[in-house]
Amino acid sequence: MQPEDFYILAIESSCDDTAAAVLHNDKVLSNVVANQSIHAEFGGVVPELASRAHQQNIVPAVTAALQRANVTKEQLSAIAYTQGPGLMGSLLVGSSFAKSMAMALDIPLIGINHMQGHILAHFIDEPGFDKPEFPFLALTISGGHTQIVRVDAPFKMELIGQTTDDAVGEAFDKTAKILGLPYPGGPLVDKYAASGNPDAYSFPKPKVPGLDFSFSGLKTSILYFIQKNRQIDADFTDKHMADICASVQKTIVDILMDKTKLAVAQTGIERVAIGGGVSANSGIRKAMEDAHKNLGWKTFIPKFEYTTDNAAMIGISAYFKYLDGDFTSVTETSKARIEF
Rank of each mutant, 00 (worst) to 15 (best):
I226L: 04
L211D: 06
S221F: 13
D243Q: 02
D199T: 10
S247N: 03
I244V: 14
L211G: 06
P209G: 13
T237R: 07
Q231S: 10
D199Q: 13
T237M: 13
D243E: 02
T260D: 12
S216W: 05
H240W: 00
Y224H: 14
P204L: 03
N197I: 00
F215A: 11
I226C: 04
I222C: 02
I244Y: 15
I222F: 04
I226H: 03
F203G: 02
Q231V: 02
V208H: 10
I232E: 10
L262G: 08
D243R: 10
Q249G: 00
R230D: 06
V248A: 10
A194M: 06
L256C: 01
K239A: 10
T251M: 00
I226M: 05
K259P: 00
S247V: 00
F215L: 04
D254I: 01
D243Y: 07
P204S: 01
D199I: 09
S195I: 07
L223W: 15
L218K: 03
D199G: 11
P198H: 05
F236K: 03
T220L: 05
C245N: 03
K259E: 02
F203E: 08
T251I: 01
P198N: 02
Q227G: 04
I232C: 06
S202D: 12
I226P: 09
D258T: 11
K261I: 09
I252A: 05
M241I: 14
D254R: 01
K239G: 10
F213L: 02
F225I: 06
P209D: 15
D238Y: 10
I226A: 07
I222H: 07
K261N: 14
D238A: 15
K261E: 13
L218C: 06
K205Q: 11
L256S: 01
L262A: 14
S202I: 12
T260R: 09
D254W: 08
V208R: 06
P206Q: 11
I232K: 06
D254H: 03
S202W: 07
K250I: 05
D233I: 11
M241P: 10
G217C: 07
K239Q: 10
S216L: 00
V253C: 05
A246F: 00
K219H: 05
L256N: 05
D199S: 08
A242R: 09
G196R: 01
I244W: 13
K207H: 08
T220A: 11
D212E: 06
Q249V: 00
D238W: 09
S216A: 03
V248E: 12
S221E: 13
L256Q: 05
D233H: 09
C245S: 05
A234N: 15
S247F: 03
K259H: 06
I232M: 04
I252Q: 10
V208N: 08
H240T: 04
I244T: 15
I226E: 04
D199Y: 07
Y201K: 05
K219E: 04
I244C: 12
L211C: 07
R230Y: 08
